[in-house]
């Protein structure tokens, strides 16, 4: 899928809360084998952080890099499965905080972990059709993992956002994007439930792998590109293992994956996951680099993107904190404090 008018990323922003809990600490509390944990540690939002505050940090970083007036944004779209309000948009609070109101389209998007990447696709269409000069799409989560559940080891907080504008203003041109979606019950959360349920092993082969592979292959086929044509690739990161496996199947060597693989250090930021990986790659990439990115959301589906970096990235990337800076800004907490911050225990 290509828009009529060529578009790209003119600014991007990332954010990860500073608190971390080690996987071995979670294993200690639940009596699990500390040698079998999926990642090293995950990010935990502070007591005064939620998807709204994280999205605001992301949006401000993206605006600084883009160097635009926020009132020129025609859309502020936030994709998340951890909305502070069940009814009342996250996006209006974000739009108000960054001074993008009132002539702006604001909406919250939902599709488990691919809620963020679909806002980017919509931004491409909004700008590509000429309806908007600039549009901001954000993927953010403060993911919920039930105590002792396998997902508690990885459900993390953070995200990234992208301002889409015309190709000539872009730091990376988006060549094309595609979606691959089916009704797959691998992970869900019912109304009024605090924690999601999942289909255990069912989350792998018929879910993550099928959709990520199908979407990625379809986009490369449509564009006539091969893994060798790309310098970097990012795949949704529910853990460390899945994105490395999917890359291997597609033929991307490990060294093209590692720069965008942030889940071992901060966990799975759900709607922020692939987008944070992309931001980490942009922090490193240079003019002419080609980037491939595929998200995955349970339910289920994948969005793939093919990008090429322009000369404008070099001057803009240093204007806001890199993903690496946020990963390195860390304070370790124990399970008790984690339980309090995540409202698993309450005063």
């Amino acid at each position: 899928m290509k828009p009529n008018k060529s578009v790209g990323i003119i600014g991007y922003g990332a954010y990860v809360p500073k608190y971390r809990i080690q996987n071995t600490e979670i294993a200690r509390v639940w009596g699990n084998d500390p040698n079998l944990v999926p990642i090293r540690e995950k990010s935990v939002p502070g007591a005064d952080e939620d998807s709204v505050t994280i999205a605001i940090e992301i949006a401000r970083n993206a605006i600084i890099r883009a160097g635009i007036n926020p009132s020129d944004l025609r859309a502020v779209w936030v994709g998340s499965e951890s909305k502070p309000y069940a009814v009342k948009p996250t996006s209006t609070i974000v739009a108000e905080a960054i001074a993008a109101t009132p002539f702006v389209n604001a909406a919250d998007w939902e599709f488990a972990c691919k809620a963020g990447s679909e806002t980017i696709q919509a931004c491409i269409a909004f700008v590509g059709s000429g309806m908007a000069k600039y549009a901001l799409g954000i993927g953010v989560d403060t993911a919920q993992g039930a105590p002792s559940d396998a997902l508690e080891y990885t459900a993390a907080a953070g995200g990234a956002g992208y301002i889409i504008g015309s190709a000539k203003e872009s730091l990376a041109i988006i060549e094309a994007s595609i979606s691959y979606v089916t009704d797959t019950p691998d992970f869900w959360r019912r109304q009024h439930e605090h924690y999601p349920k999942h289909g255990n092993r069912f989350t792998g082969e018929p879910s993550y792998f099928k959709h990520v592979l199908s979407s990625s292959k379809a986009l490369m086929e449509e564009l006539g590109t091969k893994p060798e044509d790309y310098n970097y690739a990012i795949f949704h990161q529910p853990n460390r293992k899945f994105p490395l496996e999917v890359a291997k199947i597609l033929g991307f060597p490990k060294e093209k994956i590692l720069d965008g693989l942030v889940s071992p250090y901060i966990g799975n930021t759900y709607a922020g996951s692939a987008l944070l990986g992309l931001a980490a790659v942009l922090d490193k990439a240079k003019e002419g680099d080609k980037i491939f990115c595929t998200s995955y959301g349970s339910g289920a589906g994948s969005d793939s993107f093919s990008l090429e970096v322009t000369d404008k990235l070099a001057e803009r990337k240093g204007k806001a904190p890199s993903v690496k800076s946020y990963i390195e800004r860390r304070e370790e907490i124990d399970y008790a404090k984690y339980a309090r911050y995540r409202k698993k225990i309450r005063a």
Binding site: D283, K284, K317, G318, A320, P321, S322, K324, S325, Y326, R329
Partner: peptide, 8 residues
């Protein structure tokens, strides 16, 4: 406190 940052 200001988030210190340097780019890779």
């Amino acid at each position: 406190p200001i988030v210190e940052y340097a780019h890779p």
